[in-house]
Amino acid sequence: MLKRRHSDSEVVAITVDGVAVEARAGESVAAAVLVSSSEATRTTPVSESPRAPYCMMGVCFECLMEIDGVANRQACMVQVAPGMRIQRQLGARDLRGAE
C-alpha cells in the first residue's frame, strides 16, 4: 500500500506478528506496518471487521496494536525502536488483551 521515497535512513529491526521487518529510524509503528503490508492492522471486537490506520495523528484509534506485550497502543503515536515486537489485534482478543 505504501512505499518509501528515500531508503537511506538508519534501519531499525522490528517484528510484526513474529516476522522480521526493516523499519527506519523516526517512523511510527503504524507507518512501518503499513509499508510492510496492506492487510488490516486489527479486526474489531464487535464484528471482526478489518481496520487499518485512518488519521495517523492520534484521533481515530483505528491503529490500536499490541506493542512489546502491551495491548491497545496507538501505533501512529509510537516510534519504532530496535527489537520492538508488534502484534495485530484480531477480534475479541482485543478485549482480553493479547495472549
Binding site: 500500500m1 505504501l2 512505499k3 518509501r4 521515497r5 528515500h6 527506519r24 523516526g26 517512523e27 511510527s28 507507518a31 503499513l34 509499508v35 496492506s38 492487510e39 488490516a40 492492522t41 478489518p50 481496520r51 487499518a52 490506520p53 485512518y54 488519521c55 495517523m56 495523528m57
Partner: peptide, 18 residues
C-alpha cells in the same frame, strides 16, 4: 483498510517520506 484521510498521507510524507 486502504482508506485514510488526505491529511494522514501528508503526515506519512512529512514524517516518513512515504
Amino acid at each position: 483498510p486502504g482508506v485514510m484521510t488526505a491529511g494522514a498521507v501528508q503526515i506519512l510524507m512529512k514524517s516518513a517520506a512515504m
